[in-house]
Nucleic acid binder design. Structure first.
Length: 554
RNA sequence: GCGCGAUUAGCUCAGCUGGAUAGAGCGCUGCCCUCCGGAGGCAGAGGUCGCAGGUUCGAAUCCUGCAUCGCGCGCCA
């Protein structure tokens, strides 16, 4: 609708130039917006004010010239008016709006999808939690965000891959093994000193207990190195299984798991460093090799190879990102905890060092989740290993509420997550409110079928039956869905869909309360059924993008 | 100290990248079930958009400074 109207305005502008009523002969970007107030029309443009300077005319005069042309097609397009300082407001004929309803019903699950991304290859990398402990609630927000961003991008025509980067190199697995072995010995009655750099959480004790139960004292027979390796491998495997299970129950699937270790095994890390060196972007100082990230706007230069000869995590990240583009991705999106924001400039520097546009990498920063119970903060401290796991939250409030809440704010703002609220089955809880709207339509459908009214197929309905203002307003809201998804994709902001859903659900509930869908008049009933099923389709499509189910009964 | 981000209704937050009288949910107050699911709806009260300048037809939105809060500043990952 938007696009067609823009074209219409553009044509009118051309005619003004041909007739000489306007002179500047520019074709500026036409900005159309949906005014906040209904009295200002369905769409509004500030075009006249933008052109005023070049035309050397008052904005309202420019608007008059344009409107003179636009009014010639008023019969087809609807009323046009000039308002305020020079806005041109459009009141579209209702027939244009109802065409959209046909489109919704005809396209079904496809409604809202587009080719905006033109098949560009995008990779979304998210979660990527170290496999040394269970996923906690912060990882959950990252998972919900990454998955929704990926889904939204896929919906608007990008080719999307979801990837999990597995930090399986370095000494973390070693540390895991050491931590487990110490707890294991402790369980066997040894007095052990548990160092700070070991993993503190209770899950380490639980895993050690498992080992004890299956192997008894056998590990004590091994050398320390052997024991660390064995127990570490076992524990790492169990933790991985746990992560897999959590993600599955959260409805998040990855297309690819990428091993950091494999970068070393294939010599990618060496090649990455060599490339930067060849380009003259490195230097040696105090026995270490540095990357001049300050050339590209970073605060300070960063070490690639330490003076002891060991490469840094940053070095494998250089290789990892270099390799991403070699795999053919045009755009790479990294979803990180917001505490990593200082890492953004150096990764942008990597892009520049590779000779790519810095915008080919987008970092989405996900802020902390503040867990509340009845308004009071739940104690949480990752330092001591006392964190709330994603598992606990899924088990308590369910996947749907969890994902919906995680996505209900911009990802870069902190989130208060009230567990009691998320469990409530009332209008205080936005998840239920939206899902209930969907279930309600389904319920009416069942009643209709029972009453012998078949659900109308696309194009089978007389729109003249839909005369209520609320009905038109609902259709207008449905028409905006595509732009909402596109905006969410363009800005990597899935929360826009959450807000849209709440708005659509509210309009639907309000409509439902004002009158009956199923009336004595069969044609009216059919037309209203058609309308609410348009609503149902959009609710379902939008919920699916968020990874939240659209239940038929609740 | 330097850098990044925030500051909008009592609370939690939107505000479509500069538009018209700043919006929503919760909470509060008062209403609505002979009615397809009340897990719902309607109405009301509630604002100096942190402060001060600047840019222009026009600023919550852009620029500068200040204040307060959060986070980050390893040859860790």
């Amino acid at each position: 609708m938007n696009q067609r109207l823009k074209q219409h305005i553009c044509n009118a502008l051309q005619i003004c130039y041909e007739r000489g009523t306007l002179k500047s002969a520019q074709l500026p970007e036409i900005a159309l917006e949906v005014p906040a107030r209904a009295e200002h029309g369905d769409f509004s443009t500030n075009l006249a004010m933008v052109l005023a300077r070049a035309e050397r005319m008052a904005p309202r005069k420019v608007a008059e010239a344009l409107v003179a042309v636009l009014e010639e097609s008023a019969a087809e397009w609807g009323r046009v008016e000039i308002a305020g300082p020079g806005f041109i407001n459009f009141f579209l004929a209702s027939g244009h709006w109802f065409e959209i309803l046909d489109e919704v019903l005809r396209r079904g699950a496809d409604y809202g999808r587009s080719n905006f991304g033109k098949g560009k290859k995008v990779q979304v990398e998210f979660v990527s939690a170290n496999p040394t402990g269970p996923l906690h609630i912060g990882h959950g927000r990252g998972a919900a965000t990454g998955d929704a961003v990926a889904a939204v991008l896929a919906a608007v025509g990008y080719q999307v891959q979801r990837e999990y980067y597995l930090n399986d190199a370095g000494n973390q697995m070693q540390t895991l093994g050491r931590s487990l072995l110490l707890r294991y010995r402790e369980l066997l009655g040894e007095a052990v000193e548990f160092p700070d750099d070991c993993y503190q959480g209770d899950y380490i004790r639980e895993l050690a207990q498992e080992v004890l139960e299956s192997k008894g004292r056998a590990l004590l027979e091994l050398t320390e190195d052997e024991a660390i390796e064995q127990i570490g491998a076992y524990g790492g495997g169990r933790i991985r299984d746990g992560i897999d299970q959590d993600l599955e129950d959260f409805g998040v699937y990855f297309d690819n798991w990428y091993s950091e270790q494999s970068l070393y095994d294939r010599g990618e890390v060496e090649r990455g460093i060599a490339l930067l060196r060849e380009r003259g972007l490195t230097y040696e100082l105090d026995g270490a090799l540095w990357f001049k990230t300050t050339d590209f706007g970073d605060d300070k230069d960063r070490v690639l190879v330490r003076s002891n000869g060991v490469t840094t995590y940053f070095a494998s990240d250089v290789a990892y990102h270099k390799e991403k583009y070699e795999r053919g991705f045009d755009l790479v999106i990294d979803v990180w905890g917001a505490d990593h924001h200082g890492y953004v400039p150096r990764m942008k520097a990597v892009l520049a060092g590779l000779g790519r546009d810095a915008d080919d990498l987008q970092c989405i920063l996900v802020q902390l989740v503040n867990l509340l119970r009845d308004g009071k903060q739940v104690a949480m401290s990752t330092r001591s290993g006392e964190f709330v796991t994603l598992r606990q939250v899924i088990d308590e409030v369910g996947k749907d509420a969890c994902r919906f809440f995680f996505l209900s704010r911009r990802s870069d703002s902190q989130l208060d997550f009230d567990l009691e609220l998320a469990k409530k089955q009332s209008n205080e809880n936005p998840v239920y409110y939206v899902q209930y709207a969907h279930a309600r339509v389904c319920s009416i459908n069942r009643n209709a079928v029972e009453a012998g009214i078949a659900l109308p197929a696309a194009g089978e309905v007389d729109f003249n039956q839909l005369t209520l203002e609320d009905e038109l307003a609902l259709v207008k809201q449905l028409s905006r869905y595509g732009e909402v998804v596109e905006g969410a994709a363009q800005h990597f902001e899935p929360h826009r869909i959450v807000f849209y859903l709440q708005d659509l659900a509210a309009r639907f509930h309000s409509y439902y309360n004002k009158g009956r869908v199923l009336t004595d008049d069969i044609e009216t009933s059919r037309a209203r059924l058609y309308l609410i099923n348009g609503v149902r389709i959009v609710l379902e499509n939008a919920l699916l993008l968020l990874g939240v189910s659209a239940p038929e009964r609740m």
